[in-house]
């Protein structure tokens, strides 16, 4: 075998190995969680409230989680999308844009526990919202904002300038151009941003723990407190209450994430007008 061919094959093997490792680790985690969690899953577990130390199910916690997801997305999507529109369509390159970009990037790099502390001090205490779904959602909104802004920005940049020129060339205003032509074309990208954000929201424990509280009952409204699945899992495992239930919760969490991703992808694809 020639030297070049050898190098070629070696590189190929490395690439395959890396891909295999990535997929393998993911598969292993999923299988491990499934094997350890599925035994505890029953209709009762999914439809009842937690009882005592380690009994009962997780229904209220599933609903709390969905509350937090919904509220966070409702708060962060418009802010993120508007910020991205400003950055891509209006802002002239310069100091302000650099500052905003620096801020979003820094925000993305801050550990979530710091968001939790900030949320605790600002939303829970100063604004007196208490431990509540709302405090949690506001804190998480700040946390996912960089993801929202970034992905929306990228999808706006990917909209061909020919669309903008075509619209402006017809005498349409800039606002109309953005509303009717640019944004609709960017929707699949915005949906991706929402999916990524949901992933972070669902997986977050520290920031929620400090702001939404950890009572295990169903929140009575957005101003009531309640724990999410990730927090529940953390408590079950940390306190050594029940590893079986922690795994079962993890399994439910994974299924929820997969369901949300799947349906968001479907929605995104059906809204994508650039595919005929």
């Amino acid at each position: 075998m020639s030297n070049r061919k050898l190098k070629d094959n070696l590189t190929k093997i490395l690439i395959y190995a890396a891909s295999l490792l990535t997929v393998g680790v993911l598969a292993w985690i999923l299988i491990y969680i499934t094997i350890n969690g599925i035994g505890e899953i029953s209709l009762e577990f999914l439809t009842s409230a937690p009882e005592g130390e380690s009994g009962g199910g997780i229904l209220p916690i599933i609903i709390n989680t969905l509350y937090i997801i919904l509220l966070t997305i409702v708060i962060s999507t418009p802010i993120g999308v508007f910020a991205a529109i400003y950055l891509v369509e209006y802002a002239k390159p310069g100091k302000i844009v650099r500052i905003i970009r620096f801020a979003t990037e820094s925000l993305a790099g801050i550990p979530s526990i710091i968001f939790g502390l900030f949320g605790y001090i600002f939303f829970v205490t100063v604004l007196n919202l208490g431990w509540s779904i709302l405090s949690g959602a506001l804190t998480l909104s700040i946390m996912v904002l960089p993801t929202m802004v970034r992905t929306t920005e990228e999808s706006l940049k990917a909209v061909p300038d020919a669309y903008r020129e075509g619209s402006l060339g017809l005498g349409a205003s800039k606002l109309r151009t953005i509303r009717k032509v640019v944004l609709p074309s960017a929707i699949p990208g915005i949906v991706t941003g929402i999916i990524l954000s949901i992933g972070r929201i669902v997986g977050e424990s520290a920031a929620v723990y400090f702001t939404a509280g950890m009572v295990s009952r169903l929140a009575k409204g957005f101003l009531d407190s309640g724990r999410t699945l990730a927090v529940h899992m953390y408590l079950l495992a940390k306190e050594g209450i029940s590893f079986e239930k922690a795994f079962a919760t993890a399994f439910v969490l994974v299924v929820i994430i997969l369901l949300i991703n799947f349906s968001a992808n479907k929605i995104g694809a059906s809204l994508d007008k650039t595919k005929v």
Binding site: A162, E165, V181, P184
Partner: peptide, 10 residues
């Protein structure tokens, strides 16, 4: 205006 590359909106 009509552009070089056809640019119908999606």
């Amino acid at each position: 205006m009509v552009f070089q590359k056809p640019n119908p909106f999606p």
